[in-house]
């Protein structure tokens, strides 16, 4: 069987790759494309460490076939900082030490950014529900939630 040829856009760059029909998007990101920021915690949709944006929707890249990327627009954690300039969420996670081992962090950041793009004034409950599919074994979540709420407050202020 010939491999499938897929043309897509990843972090704003037109990208082409070859894959097997049953490769997941996560397999291709981490393998041939070398974008290892997205992590594989479970491979079954439970942990959210593989979170990416697919056409402006937050999804688990482990539950998406790479073949489905044809003609789509994908953003991964590698597309979050602009050059050397960190996104406010990334900066705040560092300041507040909202990570320990860091395995969950790319997924948490991608998911949090998706939330703030929809709602820049979320309640703590909204943050916790939105991130319910991002498991963290280290932080106990509290620092993550604080960092997201603090970033939202700063971004609201900056927008004024």
């Amino acid at each position: 069987m010939a491999k499938l040829h897929v043309s897509t856009t990843i972090n704003g760059e037109p990208t082409e790759f070859l894959c097997e029909a049953n490769d997941s998007m996560l397999d291709v990101l981490r393998g041939p494309l070398g974008l290892t920021g997205s992590k594989e915690g479970c491979g079954s949709g439970d942990c959210g460490a593989c979170s990416i944006m697919l056409d402006d929707r937050l999804v688990c890249s482990c539950l998406m076939l790479a073949a489905e990327a044809e003609d789509s627009d994908i953003t991964t954690i590698e597309g979050m900082a602009v050059g050397e300039k960190l996104h406010p969420l990334q900066q705040k996670f560092l300041e507040l030490a909202a990570l320990q081992c860091g395995i969950c962090t790319p997924g948490v950041l991608v998911a949090s950014k998706a939330l703030l793009e929809r709602n820049l004034n979320p309640t703590e409950t909204e943050v916790r529900y939105w991130l319910a599919g991002n498991l963290c074994r280290c932080t106990g979540y509290d620092k993550i939630v604080r960092a997201v709420l603090d970033t939202a407050a700063e971004m609201r202020e900056a927008a004024q």
Partner: peptide, 8 residues
């Protein structure tokens, strides 16, 4: 499922 699962 989660927000991620809801996307699909």
């Amino acid at each position: 499922g989660s927000t991620q699962v809801q996307g699909r």
